[in-house]
Design a protein around this nucleic acid. Structure first.
Length: 803
RNA sequence: GCGGAUGUGGCGGAAUGGCAGACGCAGCAGACUCAAAAUCUGCCGGUGGUAACAUCGUGUGGGUUCAAAUCCCACCAUCCGCACCA
């Protein structure tokens, strides 16, 4: 009996692919760019969860190859980052050394997947020849005014001792280490991502991305439309501008609230309130963000001052409260307690009047027991606006207010500019020189890359200065503009810098003149399919979209969206938890590859469940796919040498198999592709036993269909039929099915009475409705209802007799 | 609090509104074997029945339909995202 020696078979084909590479760009085939999110080369290596994403993208790549594409399927290393730096702090070893050995190990593991990565395209974000262009892009943003310096309170992680972007703060904690984030006043480099807010939002519509991710991005950008309204302070020249999305409720504003950090907050306190106000402002400044988020019970203090509501001249009190955010809108709001639940809570607690200005049926329903927040109803208590429809007024009011001269139309975003500098060592140095005369000057192109110098101490200083600041000979330089003595910027870029454009570089890795040539970009980009985890929904994926739009604006590329289609694979969990070294639940692919082979593990990674869902890992399940491959191998090796003729029955199975497998791949139900293979394999084995063999063409078809999933055994089987070329040579294409050949001669029809299955009949495939129903009634015998109300026939499936 | 996803045998899961549980794991029985492994065959949701069969059954409760895991309404649980953005 022929035995499937997986390790010999896999070794053999890997060697063959090495000598004569598959997936050749002949310049004629259309391109298909299938990208993986490139990994951080961690010291722990890969686990079976990482494998899953790479298997999915490789199956898709190989499928596209068989559909006639030249597939761009690259891999690289996102190698700047904290673990390597922390390791350096602990051991004194340069991060470059540990990074290099980690890459070696992970690369070995990735090669075990036998994916069709083009290693000639490999990139590493820490390679000066790569980060030269990361820096170049920064200088271009600087020249366009999109990179700017600002001193302001930023998110600060006390444990990582660095500033963080808003996107890196999750639930008030550091995305990397989980430490509670504090505020620190620091001079920072910022990227003006807000200048792209509208495009980042509007362009989401055309992307073939999971709705979930699009929604997360759109909520993160958080665009709203409304108006700014000016309220004059009574007895003063000052006025307070508020932002509102509900200017239609302006008549109902009975107080205004300022954030405690508002610049006018302290000054508004009347002498008798001064002490209370100062105390409140001080207390608010000591409360952490987390505290502020968790505490829904509203606090506040009355300043003693009043402002005039410009629409009706009424005097309304000014309060301070920390439920108003200082850095959104104007840091001040008008409060309409009747129509906003937060204002309602506040007004109720502090006994401020509540005036209803919208009523569903035009009649006031005071006293209100809760805020009526819908923009639907008729305006009341609103002077000239009485009787108007609130939903319409909501849209018209900004213009009306602007015409009246009491405010202006305005849109706002939750998106903030991107805090781009890090006070750490292991990142791209920001290519800027600070000159006492010229100010901040970009390092000229011919001085790039600005390489990261060696330091003695990697430890972050914690003062807001990077370790680079300690190297005098590096810091002291001359101004590229005037030649006078000047100092280098010592902050580095965040890890996201390198990953925001790496997918462009892959197609032109050796270009010494530009990040990517326009010609290659036009030919091979953008990415057609991007596979990776969902954790980057508002981080990497937002940043990469921003970079791409910028690079389009300066003419580097000619498209504004980098990733046409996105697929988020589910996480592999073990004992209900994400695999991690600290939890001790990591399953390494290495042992499984040794014991079952690469093909078995590839198929099992898909078989564990729907690719977009999380899946619990269970080692024992791999036996199922392993047995399947063994049975398939035996069937093929026993028959490939025979000259058996194709029978009608086998032809039918073959076409059904092509149809089903293709349909399931196209709909990305990759787990059911594997079960489909098993199912057809069982049927084919049965039929082959019955008819004494199986023909060569069917064996070839099986091997082509299987090739994206289990490429080694597929090649081996293909070769058994006498073929000398690889399945992936480019001469073999994905098989078509013949619809006519798929059809069965007869079909089984279920017979129901009142929706319950009673029996089943076999009829010929072309039997007409009446014949089938007659047959069904006959088959029911005494179970046939005496009085028949209705007869339903769903062709090929069911007869239902309703009595 | 708001939004989204998920909920089906012992387990992973399958099912264009049309036979619930395909396929696989685990388990049980048998064949082969001195024996074991491997392999092959059969059984494998609950209850009643020797069986044919009947009956219940897809988180819970309603509804629509000849027919519901699937559609609608309400609720429960788990996970994820957002969280005073005015």
């Amino acid at each position: 009996m022929a035995v499937y020696n997986y390790s010999a078979v896999e070794k053999k084909w890997r060697a063959k692919w090495e000598v004569s590479p598959i997936n050749i760009n002949d310049g004629k085939k259309p391109k298909y760019y299938c990208l993986d999110m490139f990994p951080y080369p961690s010291g722990t290596g890969l686990h079976v969860g990482h494998w899953r994403g790479y298997v999915i993208s490789d199956v898709w790549s190989r499928y596209q190859m068989l559909k006639g594409h030249y597939v761009i399927h690259p891999m690289g290393w996102d190698a700047f980052g904290l673990p390597a730096e922390n390791f350096a702090i602990k051991t004194g070893q340069h991060p470059e050394i540990s990074t290099k050995s980690n890459i070696e190990n992970i690369k070995r593991q990735i090669k075990e997947i036998s994916a069709v990565y083009d290693w000639d395209m490999e990139i590493n974000t820490t390679d000066p020849e790569y980060y030269r262009w990361t820096q170049w892009i920064f200088t271009r943003m600087f020249k366009e005014g999109l990179a700017y310096e600002k001193e302001m309170p930023i998110n600060w992680c006390p444990s990582c001792k660095t500033g963080l972007s808003n996107e890196e703060v999750v639930d008030g904690k550091c995305e990397r280490c989980g430490e509670e984030v504090t505020k620190k006043n620091l001079r920072q480099w910022m990227l003006k991502i807000t200048a792209y807010a509208d495009r980042l939002l509007d362009d989401l519509d055309d992307l073939e991305w999971p709705e979930k991710v699009k929604k997360m991005q759109s909520e993160w950008i958080g665009r709203s439309f409304g108006a700014e309204v000016d309220f004059k302070v009574k007895g003063s020249d000052e006025s307070i501008t508020v932002y509102t999305t509900r200017p239609d409720t302006l008549h109902g504003a009975t107080f205004i609230v300022l954030a405690p950090e508002h610049s006018l907050a302290a000054g508004l306190a009347t002498p008798d309130k001064k002490k209370d106000v100062e105390e409140y402002i001080y207390k608010a400044s000591t409360r952490s963000n987390v505290d502020r988020m968790q505490d829904k019970d509203k606090t506040g203090v009355f300043t003693g001052s009043y402002v005039i509501n410009p629409i009706n001249g009424k005097e309304i009190p000014v309060w301070l409260s920390d439920y108003v955010l200082a850095d959104y809108g104007t840091g001040a709001i008008m409060c309409v307690p009747a129509h906003d639940s937060r204002d309602f809570d506040f007004a109720t607690k502090f006994e401020i009047p509540i005036v209803q200005v919208i009523a569903k049926d035009g009649e006031a329903s005071e006293p209100l027991t809760e805020a009526y927040t819908e923009a639907e109803g008729i305006l009341i208590n609103s002077g000239d606006w009485n009787g108007l429809e609130s939903s319409e007024l909501k849209n018209d009011a900004p213009d009306i207010i602007e015409k009246m001269g009491i405010g202006k139309k305005r849109k706002n975003y939750k998106l903030r500019d991107w805090v781009f500098s890090r006070q750490r060592y292991w990142g791209e140095p920001i290519p800027i020189v600070h000159c006492p005369k010229c100010g901040a000057v970009a390092v000229p192109d011919d001085q790039l890359p600005l390489t990261l110098p060696d330091v003695e101490k990697y430890e972050p200083t914690g003062t807001g200065e990077s370790p680079l600041a300690a190297i005098d000979e590096w810091v002291n330089t001359t101004c590229p503009q005037c030649g006078e003595a000047a100092k280098r910027e010592t902050n580095t870029m965040p890890q996201w810098a390198g990953s925001s454009w790496y997918f462009l570089r892959y197609v032109d890795v050796h270009n010494e003149n530009e990040p990517v040539s326009r010609q290659k970009a036009d030919m091979y980009l953008p990415v057609d399919m991007y596979v990776g985890g969902v954790e980057h929904a508002v981080l990497h994926l937002l940043y990469a979209r921003f970079y791409t739009k910028f690079l389009k604006d300066i003419g580097v590329v000619d498209f504004s969206e980098p990733f046409k289609r996105l697929f988020n694979q589910g996480m592999i969990v073990k004992d209900g938890a994400k695999m991690s070294k600290s939890k001790g639940n990591v399953v390494s692919p290495d042992d499984l590859v040794r014991d079952y082979g690469c093909d078995s593990l590839r198929m099992y990674e898909l078989f564990v469940g729907p690719p977009d869902m999380d899946a619990e890992w269970d080692d024992s399940g791999i036996d199922g796919v392993f047995r399947f491959l063994n049975r398939l191998y035996r069937l093929c090796s026993e028959n490939a040498g025979k000259d058996f003729a194709l029978t009608d029955d086998m032809n039918r199975l073959k076409n059904q198999m092509i149809f089903e497998i293709t349909r399931r791949i196209e709909s990305f139900n990759l787990n059911t592709v594997i079960s489909g293979f098993m199912e057809f394999n069982n049927k084919i084995i049965d039929l082959a036993a019955k008819q004494g063999g199986i023909d060569k063409e069917t064996i070839k078809t099986i091997s082509v269909l299987l090739a994206p999933f289990a490429p080694h055994i597929a090649e081996e089987i293909f070769e058994m039929t006498g073929e000398t070329e690889s399945v992936f040579s480019g001469n073999i294409s994905w098989p078509d099915y013949d619809e006519a050949a798929m059809k069965e001669n007869s079909m089984e029809v279920v017979v129901q009475v009142n929706g319950k299955v009673r029996t089943r009949i076999t009829v010929s495939a072309d039997a007409d409705k009446d014949a089938v129903i007659d047959h069904a009634k006959e088959s029911l015998g005494d179970k046939l209802p005496e009085c028949i109300k209705k007869e339903i026939y769903i062709p090929g499936k069911i007869v239902n007799i309703v009595g």
